[in-house]
Protein backbone atom coordinates (compact mmCIF):
# COMPACT_ATOMS: atom_id res chain seq x y z
CA UNK A 1 0.00 0.00 0.00
CA UNK A 2 1.33 3.44 -0.90
CA UNK A 3 2.28 5.70 1.93
CA UNK A 4 -0.61 8.14 2.28
CA UNK A 5 -1.03 11.26 4.36
CA UNK A 6 -1.93 10.29 7.91
CA UNK A 7 -5.24 12.10 7.71
CA UNK A 8 -6.38 10.30 4.57
CA UNK A 9 -5.67 6.95 6.14
CA UNK A 10 -7.15 8.00 9.47
CA UNK A 11 -10.34 9.06 7.72
CA UNK A 12 -10.74 5.51 6.65
CA UNK A 13 -10.25 6.27 2.97
CA UNK A 14 -7.67 3.54 2.83
CA UNK A 15 -8.29 0.04 4.04
CA UNK A 16 -6.69 -3.33 3.88
CA UNK A 17 -7.54 -6.66 5.36
CA UNK A 18 -7.10 -6.62 9.11
CA UNK A 19 -7.19 -2.85 9.53
CA UNK A 20 -10.13 -1.27 11.29
CA UNK A 21 -11.94 1.44 9.38
CA UNK A 22 -13.08 5.03 9.96
CA UNK A 23 -10.95 6.41 12.76
CA UNK A 24 -11.06 10.18 13.28
CA UNK A 25 -8.23 12.46 12.11
CA UNK A 26 -5.59 13.12 14.74
CA UNK A 27 -4.56 16.50 16.10
CA UNK A 28 -1.00 16.50 17.43
CA UNK A 29 -1.40 19.52 19.69
CA UNK A 30 -4.39 17.97 21.47
CA UNK A 31 -2.39 14.75 21.53
CA UNK A 32 0.37 16.46 23.51
CA UNK A 33 -2.14 16.98 26.35
CA UNK A 34 -3.20 13.35 26.25
CA UNK A 35 0.45 12.28 26.40
CA UNK A 36 0.67 13.60 29.97
CA UNK A 37 -0.88 10.27 30.93
CA UNK A 38 1.90 8.38 29.24
CA UNK A 39 5.16 10.15 30.08
CA UNK A 40 5.75 8.26 33.32
CA UNK A 41 6.65 5.21 31.30
CA UNK A 42 7.14 6.30 27.71
CA UNK A 43 9.09 9.43 28.82
CA UNK A 44 8.53 13.05 27.75
CA UNK A 45 10.63 12.61 24.60
CA UNK A 46 8.86 9.33 23.75
CA UNK A 47 12.04 7.30 24.19
CA UNK A 48 10.53 4.75 26.62
CA UNK A 49 13.01 2.72 28.62
CA UNK A 50 14.92 -0.51 28.30
CA UNK A 51 14.60 -2.31 31.61
CA UNK A 52 17.06 -5.12 32.02
CA UNK A 53 15.29 -8.08 33.61
CA UNK A 54 11.96 -6.23 33.81
CA UNK A 55 9.22 -5.16 31.44
CA UNK A 56 10.61 -2.57 29.03
CA UNK A 57 8.59 0.43 27.91
CA UNK A 58 8.72 0.72 24.14
CA UNK A 59 9.96 3.89 22.49
CA UNK A 60 7.06 5.60 20.71
CA UNK A 61 8.78 8.64 19.17
CA UNK A 62 8.29 8.73 15.40
CA UNK A 63 6.02 5.67 15.36
CA UNK A 64 3.65 5.37 12.41
CA UNK A 65 0.33 6.83 13.61
CA UNK A 66 -1.84 4.13 12.04
CA UNK A 67 0.18 1.35 13.58
CA UNK A 68 0.11 3.19 16.93
CA UNK A 69 -3.68 3.60 16.86
CA UNK A 70 -4.18 -0.04 15.90
CA UNK A 71 -2.17 -1.14 18.93
CA UNK A 72 -4.26 1.04 21.27
CA UNK A 73 -7.46 -0.39 19.77
CA UNK A 74 -6.13 -3.94 20.07
CA UNK A 75 -5.08 -3.42 23.69
CA UNK A 76 -8.48 -1.89 24.48
CA UNK A 77 -10.34 -4.73 22.84
CA UNK A 78 -8.12 -7.31 24.48
CA UNK A 79 -6.79 -8.77 21.23
CA UNK A 80 -3.36 -7.65 22.48
CA UNK A 81 -2.83 -8.40 26.15
CA UNK A 82 -0.85 -6.06 28.37
CA UNK A 83 -1.86 -5.65 32.01
CA UNK A 84 0.48 -2.63 32.25
CA UNK A 85 -0.81 -0.77 29.19
CA UNK A 86 -4.48 -1.79 29.32
CA UNK A 87 -5.65 0.73 31.93
CA UNK A 88 -4.10 3.56 29.92
CA UNK A 89 -5.44 2.38 26.60
CA UNK A 90 -8.91 2.22 28.11
CA UNK A 91 -8.71 5.95 28.95
CA UNK A 92 -8.51 6.78 25.25
CA UNK A 93 -11.55 7.12 23.01
CA UNK A 94 -11.08 7.08 19.24
CA UNK A 95 -10.44 10.81 19.07
CA UNK A 96 -7.86 10.81 21.85
CA UNK A 97 -6.18 7.78 20.32
CA UNK A 98 -5.86 9.52 16.97
CA UNK A 99 -4.58 12.69 18.65
CA UNK A 100 -1.94 11.02 20.78
CA UNK A 101 -0.86 8.84 17.84
CA UNK A 102 -0.43 11.95 15.70
CA UNK A 103 1.59 13.58 18.49
CA UNK A 104 4.03 10.70 18.93
CA UNK A 105 4.42 10.21 15.18
CA UNK A 106 5.85 13.72 14.99
CA UNK A 107 8.46 13.33 17.73
CA UNK A 108 12.09 12.90 16.75
CA UNK A 109 12.95 9.15 16.83
CA UNK A 110 15.20 8.18 19.73
CA UNK A 111 17.97 5.58 20.07
CA UNK A 112 17.31 2.02 21.25
CA UNK A 113 19.04 0.62 24.31
CA UNK A 114 20.10 -2.86 25.31
CA UNK A 115 22.53 -3.70 22.52
CA UNK A 116 25.57 -1.99 24.05
CA UNK A 117 27.23 -5.03 25.60
CA UNK A 118 26.44 -7.61 22.93
CA UNK A 119 29.37 -9.63 21.62
CA UNK A 120 30.36 -9.44 17.94
CA UNK A 121 29.21 -13.00 17.10
CA UNK A 122 25.74 -12.29 18.48
CA UNK A 123 25.52 -9.01 16.58
CA UNK A 124 26.64 -10.71 13.38
CA UNK A 125 23.94 -13.34 13.71
CA UNK A 126 21.40 -10.61 14.50
CA UNK A 127 22.35 -8.65 11.42
CA UNK A 128 22.10 -11.76 9.27
CA UNK A 129 18.58 -12.47 10.52
CA UNK A 130 17.50 -8.87 10.05
CA UNK A 131 18.95 -8.35 6.58
CA UNK A 132 19.22 -11.77 4.92
CA UNK A 133 17.12 -14.04 7.10
CA UNK A 134 17.98 -17.69 7.59
CA UNK A 135 16.26 -19.65 4.88
CA UNK A 136 17.56 -22.94 6.23
CA UNK A 137 14.93 -22.42 8.95
CA UNK A 138 12.58 -20.43 6.71
CA UNK A 139 13.16 -17.30 8.75
CA UNK A 140 12.48 -14.57 6.20
CA UNK A 141 14.61 -11.46 6.74
CA UNK A 142 12.97 -8.87 8.98
CA UNK A 143 13.62 -6.19 6.41
CA UNK A 144 11.56 -7.94 3.74
CA UNK A 145 8.48 -6.86 5.74
CA UNK A 146 9.79 -4.12 8.03
CA UNK A 147 11.29 -2.22 5.09
CA UNK A 148 14.64 -0.60 4.28
CA UNK A 149 16.78 -0.28 7.39
CA UNK A 150 13.95 -2.04 9.26
CA UNK A 151 12.48 1.43 9.69
CA UNK A 152 8.98 0.44 8.64
CA UNK A 153 6.90 -0.10 5.49
CA UNK A 154 3.45 1.43 5.25
CA UNK A 155 1.08 1.36 8.19
CA UNK A 156 0.99 -2.40 8.70
CA UNK A 157 4.72 -3.00 9.13
CA UNK A 158 6.17 -0.87 11.95
CA UNK A 159 9.74 0.36 12.22
CA UNK A 160 11.69 -1.89 14.60
CA UNK A 161 15.24 -0.51 14.23
CA UNK A 162 16.22 1.58 17.23
CA UNK A 163 13.57 -0.02 19.46
CA UNK A 164 14.73 -1.29 22.85
CA UNK A 165 16.20 -4.78 22.86
CA UNK A 166 14.21 -5.84 25.92
CA UNK A 167 10.95 -4.87 24.24
CA UNK A 168 11.77 -6.53 20.89
CA UNK A 169 12.80 -9.71 22.66
CA UNK A 170 9.65 -9.75 24.80
CA UNK A 171 7.38 -9.24 21.77
CA UNK A 172 9.02 -11.98 19.72
CA UNK A 173 8.75 -14.36 22.64
CA UNK A 174 5.12 -13.38 23.14
CA UNK A 175 4.44 -14.27 19.49
CA UNK A 176 6.37 -17.48 19.82
CA UNK A 177 4.34 -18.65 22.81
CA UNK A 178 1.07 -17.34 21.34
CA UNK A 179 0.63 -14.65 24.01
CA UNK A 180 0.60 -11.95 21.29
CA UNK A 181 -1.44 -12.69 18.20
CA UNK A 182 -2.87 -9.39 17.02
CA UNK A 183 -0.75 -9.38 13.85
CA UNK A 184 -2.62 -9.47 10.54
CA UNK A 185 -2.72 -12.93 8.94
CA UNK A 186 -0.33 -14.38 11.53
CA UNK A 187 2.48 -12.81 9.51
CA UNK A 188 4.73 -12.08 12.48
CA UNK A 189 3.80 -15.20 14.45
CA UNK A 190 4.78 -17.49 11.57
CA UNK A 191 8.31 -16.09 11.67
CA UNK A 192 8.70 -15.83 15.45
CA UNK A 193 7.70 -19.46 15.99
CA UNK A 194 10.69 -20.57 13.88
CA UNK A 195 13.18 -18.59 15.96
CA UNK A 196 15.25 -20.00 18.81
CA UNK A 197 15.57 -17.89 21.95
CA UNK A 198 19.20 -17.22 21.01
CA UNK A 199 18.15 -15.96 17.59
CA UNK A 200 15.52 -13.74 19.19
CA UNK A 201 18.11 -12.28 21.50
CA UNK A 202 20.62 -11.79 18.67
CA UNK A 203 18.22 -9.94 16.39
CA UNK A 204 16.88 -7.83 19.29
CA UNK A 205 20.29 -6.54 20.34
CA UNK A 206 21.32 -5.88 16.75
CA UNK A 207 18.13 -3.97 15.91
CA UNK A 208 18.38 -1.95 19.13
CA UNK A 209 21.76 -0.65 18.04
CA UNK A 210 20.55 0.50 14.59
CA UNK A 211 19.51 3.94 13.45
CA UNK A 212 15.95 4.55 14.68
CA UNK A 213 13.18 6.13 12.67
CA UNK A 214 10.15 5.52 10.58
CA UNK A 215 10.21 5.35 6.80
Amino acid sequence: MKKLPVTLAALGLVTYAGMAVSAPAGDASRGKEVANLCVACHQPDGSGMNLEGGESWPGLAGMNAEYFAKQIRDIKQGTRLSPTMAPFASMLDDQKTADVAAYYSQLEPTAGKGGENADPATLKRGQQLAEQGDWSKYIVSCKSCHGPGNRGAGEAFPGIAGQHAGYIEAQLKAWKTGARKNDPQDLMGSIARRMSDDDIHAVAVWLASQKPGNN
Binding site: K2, K3, G147, G149, G154, F157, N215
Partner: peptide
Protein backbone atom coordinates in the same frame (compact mmCIF):
# COMPACT_ATOMS: atom_id res chain seq x y z
CA UNK B 1 1.21 -2.01 -7.40
CA UNK B 2 3.03 -3.32 -4.32
CA UNK B 3 4.99 -0.94 -2.10
CA UNK B 4 8.18 1.01 -2.49
CA UNK B 5 9.84 2.82 0.38
CA UNK B 6 12.83 5.13 0.02
CA UNK B 7 13.17 4.23 -3.67
CA UNK B 8 13.54 0.56 -2.77
CA UNK B 9 11.10 -2.22 -3.49
CA UNK B 10 9.65 -3.78 -0.37
Amino acid sequence: SGLRVDNQTV
